[in-house]
């Protein structure tokens, strides 16, 4: 049949518009980023020239690089377990038919659909010294408060709270979907066996949620690299880079300091982390899902 004979041609024709754009904005730039990172920064007097691994050596000697790397680690540790735990709690609360489940679900989920910029604007007023809501609540009852966003020891923590607030409701959705797919007979069986609610959660529900947790975990790690919008409003990475993250540092290096090769070297490091994440996803996660 003519149709079948042409299936290779038709297949490639159908995917070509999407494929061309994807190559242009994903694969091609990934390769050129790597080449760009092997050159020096040019200026009118000295044009850019090949320097091999020099940008990467400079990176190792750059204290700011190590600071943002460390910050990214704290940011991930600070946001991921807390938002996953909250997400599971929220999903369990919403899954049973409590009074006003519709409202509860709405309240938990709403932060998810707000832009991070809008969220940061709202939270800015909570964190502002003296006139901010946090200080107005805590100072009268005798609690000394730091300058939340201005103090290096609390700036990143302040960003972490916002991210938890924004992400928990989003992850709740995936747990809710998993809980609703769970067979009700399991619960009945456990009831007959006299298992307490906590035992049931620990021995039955939580293990069954494992594939969801792995899926959420990968997305949460991905977000911990990608979510930098609130930094623009709240701290600009400061004070003294105490709240800067890798992607924000890349942006600053490229668009404030105009050092493209160095920004490229930083991007390659970020790609390396994402590559490891992808390997974990396809190694562990996919196997778990087939297992299910």
């Amino acid at each position: 049949m003519n149709f079948m004979g042409n299936r290779h041609v038709i297949g490639w024709l159908l995917i070509s518009p999407a494929a061309i754009l994807l190559v242009t904005f994903t694969h091609y730039p990934a390769v050129t980023t790597f080449f760009s990172s092997l050159f020096s920064r040019g200026n009118p007097i000295r044009p850019s020239k090949f320097v091999g691994a020099d940008q990467y050596l400079a990176l190792l000697d750059d204290p700011v690089f190590w600071t943002v790397l460390e910050n990214n680690l704290y940011y991930a540790i600070g946001t991921i377990p807390a938002s996953i735990a909250l997400a599971i709690a929220m999903a369990l609360l919403v899954d049973r038919a409590l009074a006003g489940t519709g409202f509860l679900r709405l309240a938990y989920f709403t932060p998810t659909i707000l832009p991070m910029i809008a969220v940061a604007n709202i939270w800015l007023f909570f964190y502002t010294p003296e006139i901010g809501l946090l200080d107005r609540l805590l100072n009268p009852i005798g609690i000394e408060t730091p300058n939340w966003l201005g103090d290096p020891s609390t700036a990143l923590l302040s960003l972490i709270f916002i991210t938890i607030w924004k992400e928990a409701g989003f992850f709740m959705i995936f747990y809710l979907a998993a809980l609703q797919a769970q067979s009700p007979e399991l619960k009945e069986a456990a009831k007959l066996e006299g298992a307490s609610a906590f035992t049931f959660f620990r021995r039955v529900t939580f293990p069954l949620l494992m594939p969801t947790t792995l899926f959420v975990l990968v997305n949460a790690v991905l977000n911990s690299f990608k979510l930098v919008d609130h930094i623009f409003i709240l701290t600009k990475g400061g004070p003294d880079n105490a709240s800067s993250l890798i992607l924000y540092y890349i942006y600053e290096t490229a668009f404030s300091f105009f050092d493209t090769p160095y920004a490229s070297a930083l991007t390659i490091i970020l790609l390396l982390f994402l590559g490891i994440l992808a390997l974990i996803q396809f190694g562990v996660l996919e196997r778990r899902i087939h297992y299910r």
Binding site: P29, T33, L222, S264, L271
Partner: peptide, 10 residues
């Protein structure tokens, strides 16, 4: 995994 904003420079 690699969304366009990750490769923002290029």
């Amino acid at each position: 995994m690699i969304t366009p904003e990750i490769l923002i420079v290029e």
